[in-house]
């Protein structure tokens, strides 16, 4: 299990994405699955930067490990300490069929994440889960796996 953390600035997030990508490649990610890892990270971390930490940058934590099942899976736990937000429930439903006029512009980020991951789940962390660095108000954790093979 490898742990990464940073404050949610654009520069830090870009570096964090590269670090996790380097790990995924070490675990055997192909060009294609590396792109999937980057896309999933970009969607989730951008969401945290723009919504969980709207006013000022806050702490993002990622735990990454390799699940060596039938296929290689990169397992990620991504945590922020912003207000409660469950993207699996609270995001707009994507509309993939309407024409340009009727198609809503929201919901695509979570649609991409759902489609490129396995076993996507959300948990709201209460203060008891918080570590020494985190505020006591609680946080949001997304757990997911991305096929690397």
């Amino acid at each position: 299990m490898q742990h990464f953390e940073c404050m949610s600035t654009i520069e830090n997030i870009s570096r964090l994405e590269k670090d996790v990508l380097t790990l995924a490649e070490k675990f055997g990610a192909t060009d294609k699955t590396s792109r999937h890892v980057l896309l999933v990270l970009e969607e989730i971390l951008t969401n945290i930067r723009l919504h969980a930490y709207k006013k000022e940058p806050g702490l993002i934590e990622i735990s990454a490990s390799l699940c060596d099942a039938d296929i290689h899976l990169l397992h990620l736990e991504i945590t922020d300490w912003g207000p409660p937000f469950n993207p699996l429930v609270d995001s707009a439903a994507p509309d993939l069929e309407s024409d340009i006029d009727d198609r809503p512009v929201g919901g695509l980020g979570i649609h991409i994440v759902r489609n490129l991951t396995h076993a996507l789940s959300y948990v709201r962390l209460d203060a008891a889960h918080a570590d020494a660095l985190a505020p006591l108000s609680g946080g949001n954790r997304l757990c997911l796996s991305i096929p690397l093979g």
């Binding site: 896309l39 006029d101 512009v105 649609h111």
Partner: peptide, 19 residues
């Protein structure tokens, strides 16, 4: 070389404005 949902959203917004 890379597009995310934010890029798709801006394309859809442009298309809506052109209609």
């Amino acid at each position: 070389s890379f597009i995310s949902s934010a890029g798709l959203r801006s394309i859809l917004i442009l298309a809506k404005k052109l209609r």
